[in-house]
């Protein structure tokens, strides 16, 4: 693993490029190819499934973990025995419903009813405003990747579908720390109307009170979503005109890209990642993926 790793800042630098250790990627990849003919229809399909597990085997040097990202935003931590670049942050356990609720919880200084309630991971009775109580809150590596094409032709018509998908992985929707940011006067997402207003109007359990001024924008599991999805990436439909109709060999076609996305993920693109390398699984709402339609004709003179 050749990565930039942290070094003591007394050297004048905070990172250096080094061979830091070993990672094992193990898994299986299945490819199924199938062709058949049903009546006059020729069908072709190809299914590709990838299952991969990665595990950090060894980290050299004094550090027992490689950290990327920041306290506010997406934290990634790579530790021996765990997959690389796990999402890291406070575990959000809900929203404080009342003063009573705040009092009965480990000390979270500055919390009021309506603030996010964090998990006291180190069990010292205090949720401190630093990384001490942060834990793994998500795995940015899909358990399974899918690629599926389905194509065929009948008479002069032909068609081709391409699906891609990824399953069981997490994405830190960092953008919501801004677009669901209640600690001031901003434009926010519409779901902000379901924020906590009072003990009697607790909202949807995901929007903090607009009176909060701390415990909101820190990396926490509130912003982590399952990003499993299947995407209909492309569809092509074509028709080749019979040669007895027209003198030239002609094929008319229609194709569409990124037609349908099947997912519960709230963002526009569950397949993004900012940061790269080992700072992955972070969605800052990149430019949306366009849906494109193409009509065309291929004519050979």
């Amino acid at each position: 693993m050749l990565l930039s790793v942290e070094m003591p800042s007394i050297s004048g630098f905070t990172q250096s490029l080094d061979n830091v250790g070993q990672v094992r990627n193990s898994g299986i990849e299945l490819g199924l190819d199938f062709r058949t003919k049903v009546n006059r229809v020729n069908l072709r399909t190809n299914l590709n499934l990838t299952f991969n597990r990665n595990e950090v085997l060894e980290l050299r040097g004094g550090a027992d973990a490689i950290w990327n990202g920041s306290f506010y935003g997406a934290n990634n931590v790579s530790k021996v025995g765990r997959p690389m670049a796990m999402l890291y942050g406070f575990k959000m356990m809900g929203i404080f419903q009342s003063d009573e609720d705040v009092k009965n919880w480990p000390t979270q200084d500055g919390a009021i009813p309506g603030t996010y309630k964090y998990f006291d991971a180190d069990g010292d009775g205090v949720i401190s405003y630093d990384r001490r109580d942060m834990i793994e809150i998500g795995n940015p590596h899909p358990a399974m990747l899918l690629g599926w094409t389905l194509g065929g032709d009948v008479g002069g018509f032909d068609f081709n579908f391409l699906f891609t998908g990824a399953f069981n992985y997490d994405m830190m929707r960092n953008i919501e720390a801004t677009t669901m940011n209640m600690d001031g006067v901003f434009n926010i997402l519409q779901s902000g109307v379901n924020r906590f207003r009072s003990t009697d109007m607790p909202g949807d359990g995901r929007g903090a009170t607009s009176n909060t001024w701390k415990w909101q924008r820190e990396a926490n599991s509130r912003y982590v979503y399952d990003a499993s999805h299947v995407w209909l990436r492309s569809v092509t439909l074509g028709y080749s005109l019979p040669l007895n109709v027209i003198k030239f060999k002609t094929r008319l076609f229609f194709s569409g890209e990124n037609l349908f996305l099947f997912t519960d993920y709230p963002g526009t693109n569950p397949d993004v990642s900012r940061g790269g390398e080992i700072n992955i699984g972070r969605d800052d709402e990149a430019y949306p993926v366009p849906r494109t339609f193409t009509f065309g004709a291929t004519i050979s003179f």
């Binding site: 600690d183 006067v185 001024w213």
Partner: peptide, 30 residues
């Protein structure tokens, strides 16, 4: 009140709520 932003990290110095994770000390040191 209107924009908390990353204010808490700097307010921690005024209110003496700082700890080893307070990012401004890391910037100063580095």
């Amino acid at each position: 009140v209107g924009n908390r932003g990353q204010g808490p990290a700097l307010e921690a110095i005024e209110y003496w709520q700082y700890n080893a994770g307070t990012p401004n000390f890391a910037s100063l040191y580095n």
